[in-house]
């Protein structure tokens, strides 16, 4: 999946307009990224990318950029 598509899937579960997330975003810059929002992002990884989420690195990420890098290193995302 392309990074852009993934970010839009995350926008959708966070109930944001498309193309409103950047790699710099964190829970502090995105109002909808609260504890429930965080679970929604994990659910999106599970559902859209189908990679195992029962690992620390798929649970604890503090920015969109950090998550995207980890997913790219698993070949789950491409530019």
């Amino acid at each position: 999946m392309k990074v852009e598509e993934f970010l839009n899937a995350v926008c959708e579960v966070l109930l944001r307009d498309p193309n409103t997330l950047s790699l710099d975003d964190t829970p502090n810059t995105v109002e909808e990224w609260d504890s429930v929002g965080h679970l929604s992002i994990i659910a999106t990884i599970d559902e859209e990318l189908g990679i195992p989420v029962d690992t620390e690195e798929m649970q604890n990420f503090r920015s969109i950029g950090e998550l995207v890098e980890r997913l790219k290193s698993k070949n789950a995302l491409e530019d």
Binding site: H38, L39, I42, A43, D46, P52, V53, D54, Q59, N60
Partner: peptide, 13 residues
């Protein structure tokens, strides 16, 4: 409760 960990465990298992 570590919400993300529990959630991830559940949706995987």
């Amino acid at each position: 409760m570590d919400g993300p960990a529990i959630f991830s465990f559940v949706i995987t298992t």
